[in-house]
């Protein structure tokens, strides 16, 4: 070894904060701002009186914060002709949400169970077809479905929208449960068969109790999905059952005269509240739901 080689960079003891690291944190900080900005603006706008909004800065904190806009948005904002606030939509959304989530998970898990553990002829074709149609836009089905429902006399109703959510949730729910049941040790299923349990007994007594994690994921996925739906609710729920998203859009985009931005933002936040609560409440489960729902096929 030569003496030159002895003088290798023996310095740089700590690698904690290099320039690259500073750049990284700067990037994270700036992107985080971009993602947080709309939420922040929504909150501050909803707490300002209109006068302050007109004169002040979009980003400024409210000088005299007030929840008047929230109260108004909830109880008396106008959607077209009626002025009962967005609470009507909230209640409608809840009435749509609960049965839709329950029934779609029930049907989806049963289908996934039948497709994964029982060798029914044509099961793979059925499953493959379901994965293909999951990608097709609703616009392709909507008109015939409207006709079918009006022909059967159901028309636009709570019942109709629940069925519609079940139908369009079926591919994802089936995929979710099929993959989960297929990942369980098949010996479990065989042991239950040897013990003499039948199709529905195995489903109800053994498989579903084991599928709790998947049920949680499915509930998260369906709750946010159905709550956030706009187009299906608009077309199938009927005038008296319009979900919150539709009512929100009506409040904001069909006002006459000057727009009450604070009320608009309060209503928007109220509509986003449930999915946000689900998201922040469920933590990693939400990510898991995305992962499970994202990996189609």
């Amino acid at each position: 070894m030569t003496a030159v080689a002895q003088t290798l960079p023996a310095a740089r003891r700590s690698k904690r904060m290099t320039p690259a690291r500073w750049g990284l944190y700067a990037f994270i900080f700036i992107t985080a701002l971009y993602f947080l900005l709309p939420l922040y603006v929504m909150v501050v706008t909803s707490l300002k009186p209109m006068a302050e909004i007109r004169q002040g800065n979009l980003l400024a904190l409210p000088i005299a914060p007030s929840i008047d806009a929230w109260v108004k948005a909830w109880t008396s904002a106008c959607t077209g002709l009626t002025c009962q606030g967005i609470k009507v939509g909230f209640l409608n959304s809840l009435r749509i949400l609960v049965p839709s989530v329950a029934i779609s998970i029930l049907v989806g898990s049963l289908t996934g169970y039948a497709l994964s553990l029982w060798r029914v002829r044509g099961a793979n074709i059925l499953f493959g077809a379901m994965m293909v149609v999951a990608f097709i836009p609703y616009q392709v089905f909507i008109y015939p479905l409207v006709r079918v429902f009006s022909f059967t006399g159901l028309g636009q109703s709570l019942f109709t929208i629940v069925i519609i959510h079940t139908i369009f949730g079926l591919p994802t729910m089936t995929l979710l449960f099929r993959n989960y049941f297929a990942s369980l040790p098949v010996e479990l299923f065989k042991a239950a068969r040897v013990d003499g349990a039948g199709f529905y007994q195995i489903y109800a007594r053994i498989m579903m109790p084991m599928a709790t994690p998947m049920i949680v994921v499915a509930v998260i996925l369906q709750t946010t999905g159905i709550w956030n739906d706009f187009i299906l609710g608009l077309v199938f729920a009927g005038r008296d059952n319009l979900p919150m998203t539709v009512q929100l859009n009506n409040i904001v985009n069909s006002t006459q005269g000057e727009r009450a931005y604070n009320v608009d933002m309060a209503a928007t936040l109220l509509t986003a509240l449930l999915p946000l609560a689900v998201y922040f409440g469920s933590g990693r489960w939400f990510v898991r739901g995305i992962a499970a729902g994202a990996v189609k096929g």
């Binding site: 070894m1 080689a5 002895q6 290798l8 960079p9 023996a10 310095a11 740089r12 003891r13």
Partner: peptide, 13 residues
């Protein structure tokens, strides 16, 4: 390594 102090050197070096 090989007579050089490499305690804080990059792996490639």
């Amino acid at each position: 390594i090989g007579g050089r102090d490499v305690t804080w050197a990059e792996p490639k070096d």
